[in-house]
Design a protein around this nucleic acid. Sequence first.
DNA 1: ACGGGCATGTAAGCGGTTACATGATTCG
DNA 2: CGAATCATGTAACCGCTTACATGCCCGT
Lengths: 183, 183
Amino acid sequence: MRSVLRYGLLGLLSEGPASGYDLAQRFKTSLNAVWPVSHPQVYTELVKMASESLVTVDPSGTRGRKVYAITASGKTEVQRWLTSSDIDRTLRSESLFRVFFFWLMKNEDLHQHLEQEKQYFTTQATRYQAIGKAKENGEYGMGPSVASARLAVEAGARLYGALAEWAQWVIDNEDSKETGQGR
Amino acid sequence: MRSVLRYGLLGLLSEGPASGYDLAQRFKTSLNAVWPVSHPQVYTELVKMASESLVTVDPSGTRGRKVYAITASGKTEVQRWLTSSDIDRTLRSESLFRVFFFWLMKNEDLHQHLEQEKQYFTTQATRYQAIGKAKENGEYGMGPSVASARLAVEAGARLYGALAEWAQWVIDNEDSKETGQGR
DNA sequence: ACGGGCATGTAAGCGGTTACATGATTCG
DNA sequence: CGAATCATGTAACCGCTTACATGCCCGT
């Protein structure tokens, strides 16, 4: 099952033509949170897609820009992906991976780590809440793609909110053990 | 920044010696949810780690098993990882990636997709809740590694719970749009 | 003029998947 | 005895990262 990069690019191009640089930037500012990509990856994939005529290239943009546009077969391809039901639903996370090995950490180090994690999660949660508010106030325009992004942001806010609460729960658990309240 | 596979293996070996097959199985039953690995990856990494003397090999196990054990330098290595602060906190998810392109879907397809996602998320949430209960009842033993796994399971339950609620929220949003309640 | 961001790429190498391959052991 | 599972690997290939490289254009 091929990576989602291709479909992300086709999805972004569905909003209108853009250069590789544009696409890499837009990946970095929004999609990066759930699927990081690097710019060489974007450029090479665009070339590949052009050779499969999923996109067209107009190399006459200003400042050497190459403007890509989605084709009809590109549109069918992204549609096919969106309606295909074989999704990899794994939630990959190095943070959660570490949790399995908390028992190897010294109490002191673990406590510090948990505080950091909680800090990070709450920051992210409030950040996404703020972005969500801003999107509702139309600060990003009001196209259909913005409405979808709003949904994604809401998911982020809820996820990081849940993780922040979880971190607090773990900290409380630790404390009750140490003070012997559970005896 | 190298992948977490190595540290996962060292972490599992901290509980005691095990074969490559064992380790691959244990990855698949617990760590797979946050970091999938395939068995060739496990075998090759173990060979590499043996050559760096982070683990030792005893090839005289029953049925051709090769039993690996963690060394002192292996232990320091996993400790170093656990206390290093440069974590990649990205929450990779193909499900959430798709959300950005919901606006490209037909209402009908989208609604069906959302119902499926909600179904999946709620199933996972209840599944993790059940595992959490079982761990508390000591059905997996009561070693320190089980306590950590319990924390990870709790995170999973909360995460998927939040996602299930989110999916419901999106469905409600869609409905209010269609029936014109927002007018 | 020059520093910084715009814009595109190449190349090496690692991480990871998929398919293939092999033998040993247990269970029915 | 045969099927399933245990157990370990190899090889080809793809995805992706990192480092390197180049030229253009804008603002000061």
